[in-house]
């Protein structure tokens, strides 16, 4: 340290200033967010979307959720037989599918255990609310997000 100072006093400071100058002339890697939308990667766990038609009210997601933030209610509906003379079908229909995003840990276990392709991740991120109770999103909102599910990215050759 001492012999460096003899050669040139505060050399470290000048080198630092030179680096600052070089960085100043480079373009900034910042996305100016409200004006320019950031594009998350396709796998980003932004929010969970629901396909109401595919859901069979099996409650697997609600049971496996680590902090039990999924609320499901449903009822059985009689369907007319598909062929004349056949047996009438019973189909489970969703009444309520709410996810409380103030509790959600974004772990993705519900998406993973769903056996009927009803839950999907989407990289949507603009759903902040001024009140925490408004983060309980219902079926309509979750269905709306289904339209934003991206395609799966191509994979590395292995």
């Amino acid at each position: 340290m001492s012999d460096k100072q003899i050669r040139f006093p505060f050399r470290g400071l000048w080198e630092g200033m030179w680096l600052t100058l070089k960085t100043m002339l480079k373009p900034a890697p910042v996305t100016m967010y409200p004006q320019v939308q950031e594009e998350p990667v396709p796998r980003a766990r932004g929010v969970i979307a629901l396909d109401v038609e595919a859901c069979t009210v099996c409650m697997l997601c609600a049971r496996e959720c680590p902090d039990w933030c999924i609320y499901i209610e449903g009822h059985k509906e009689e369907q007319p037989p598909s062929k004349p003379g056949g047996r009438p079908r019973v189909r489970a229909t969703l009444d309520r599918f709410d996810i409380d995003y103030s509790l959600c840990m974004y772990c993705g276990i519900c998406v993973e255990v769903c056996p009927f392709d009803a839950l999907f991740w989407t990289p949507e991120y603009e759903y902040s609310e001024p009140k925490i109770t408004n983060l309980l999103h219902n079926m309509d909102k979750l269905t709306y997000w289904l339209g934003t599910v991206p395609d799966q990215p191509p994979l590395e050759k292995s």
Binding site: R43, V111, C114, P115, F116, D117, Q152, L155, K157
Partner: peptide, 19 residues
């Protein structure tokens, strides 16, 4: 990706160009 018949086929291997 998931447990359904469609999402079972979505592999979560390294995405293209990751390496």
């Amino acid at each position: 990706y998931g447990g359904g018949s469609m999402t079972k086929k979505w592999s979560l291997d390294l995405p293209e160009g990751f390496l």
